[in-house]
Write a protein that binds this DNA or RNA. Structure first.
Length: 289
DNA sequence: CACGGAACCTGCCCGC
DNA sequence: TGCGGGCAGGTTCCGT
C-alpha cells in the first residue's frame, strides 16, 4: 500500500520522536518481528533503553538510527503497516489498543508513544546493524529519485539494459526505489508508455520522460499527504491523504482517460493490476527474438 | 543468472 | 443471511 510519498509522510510525522529514549517495548504479534534474528526477545532487548535519532528513509524503507550506536530501528510497512503516535502508553494497555496493533514502543519524557499496526502483517520492524548510516537490510535497495545521490544516468543504463517489460523494471527496488503499483501506472500514463513495452527498446527520451513523470507524480502525491483509498493508509495521526482524487488511471477501470476520453483498461499483471489508457499507451511490437 | 509466478496474510466487497 | 471468489498500496522465495 504505502509507496514513497506515503512513507515520507509517515517519516515526517515521526520527527517529534527524535531524541526520546525507549522506556518499554512489547511485541504483541511475533510475525511483526519475524525478520529479527532471535525473534521477539532479541528485538525487545536490543531496543530497550536506546535513544531514537531523526527518522530516515530510502524508497519504502524507514528507520530510526539509534543514537550513539551503529544500529537502527528499521520499519517496512508492507501493504498495510502503520506507524502511529499515541499519547497513552501501549505496554499494558491490552484491549484498549486498536485491533491490528502489533508492536508498542513507549518513550521517556514528554510527548507521544509509538505503535506499529498492520492488518495483513506483510510489514514489520527489526533492530539491525547499520553500515555507513545505512541499515544492512537496506544496502541492496537502490537510491530513490528524491535522494541527493540519485544517479539518473546509472538508472537509465539499468532500465535500458533490461529485457523485461518496463513496469516490471520500474517496480524493481534494486533499480530505482520508492515506486509501487499506483505511481508506476500513473507515471506510465503521463509518459504515454504501455506497461509491458520492452525496457531495452525504449528510446532514451522516453525513459527520461518516464522518470521525470514518476518524480512529478510522487511529489504531487506527497504534497497531498499521500494516496488513501480506505483507512489502511493513514499518517501518524490516523488521517488519510487525498491524492486518490487526483489519480488519472489507477483504479479507474472503465472511466474515461482524462486526456482522450477512451475508457481506462485494467489488465491482470504480476498477480495484481495494471491500469492504462489503450489509446494513449500503445503496446510495442511483439517481442522478436 | 534472469525472469515470472506463487506464497505470505487479513478483511472487505461482490455476486449467487 | 451465508458462502465462495476476487481483490488490495509489497517483498521474498522457488522453479524454470
Amino acid at each position: 500500500m504505502p509507496e514513497l510519498p506515503e512513507v515520507e509522510v509517515v517519516r515526517t510525522g515521526l520527527m517529534p520522536l527524535a531524541g526520546r529514549r525507549v522506556r518499554a517495548v512489547r511485541v504483541l504479534h511475533p510475525r511483526a518481528v519475524r525478520r529479527q534474528p532471535g525473534g521477539t526477545a532479541e528485538f525487545e532487548h536490543r531496543l530497550l533503553g536506546q535513544v531514537l535519532a531523526e527518522p530516515r528513509r530510502r524508497g519504502k524503507y524507514l528507520w530510526f538510527p539509534l543514537a550513539g550506536t551503529d544500529e537502527a530501528l528499521l520499519a517496512h510497512l508492507g501493504m498495510s503497516g502503520q506507524m502511529l503516535l499515541a499519547d497513552a502508553p501501549g505496554v499494558g494497555a491490552g484491549a484498549d489498543l486498536g485491533p491490528h496493533v502489533r508492536v508498542v514502543v513507549d518513550l521517556d519524557g514528554t510527548g507521544p508513544n509509538l505503535r506499529f499496526a498492520d492488518q495483513r502483517t506483510f510489514g514489520g520492524l527489526t533492530v539491525v546493524d547499520a553500515e555507513a548510516g545505512l541499515p544492512v537490510p537496506v544496502q541492496h535497495i537502490a537510491r530513490d529519485p528524491f535522494d541527493p545521490g540519485f544517479d539518473p544516468d546509472a538508472v537509465m543504463r539499468l532500465i535500458r539494459g533490461s529485457h523485461r517489460g518496463i513496469k516490471r523494471v520500474l517496480l524493481d527496488q534494486t533499480v530505482v526505489s520508492g515506486i509501487g503499483n499506483i505511481y508506476a501506472d500513473e507515471a506510465l500514463w503521463r509518459a504515454r508508455i504501455h506497461y509491458d513495452r520492452s525496457a531495452d527498446r525504449l528510446p532514451r527520451r522516453a525513459v527520461a520522460t518516464l522518470l521525470a513523470s514518476a518524480v512529478a507524480v510522487m511529489a504531487e502525491a506527497l504534497a497531498a499527504g499521500g494516496t488513501s483509498f480506505d483507512a489502511l493508509y493513514v499518517n501518524v495521526n490516523g488521517q488519510s491523504g487525498w491524492f486518490d482524487r487526483s489519480l488519472s488511471v489507477y483504479g479507474q477501470a472503465d472511466r474515461p482517460c482524462p486526456r482522450c476520453g477512451t475508457p481506462i483498461r485494467r489488465d491482470r499483471f504480476m498477480n495484481r493490476s495494471s491500469y492504462f489508457c489503450p489509446r494513449c499507451q500503445r503496446p510495442g511490437r511483439p517481442t522478436a527474438a
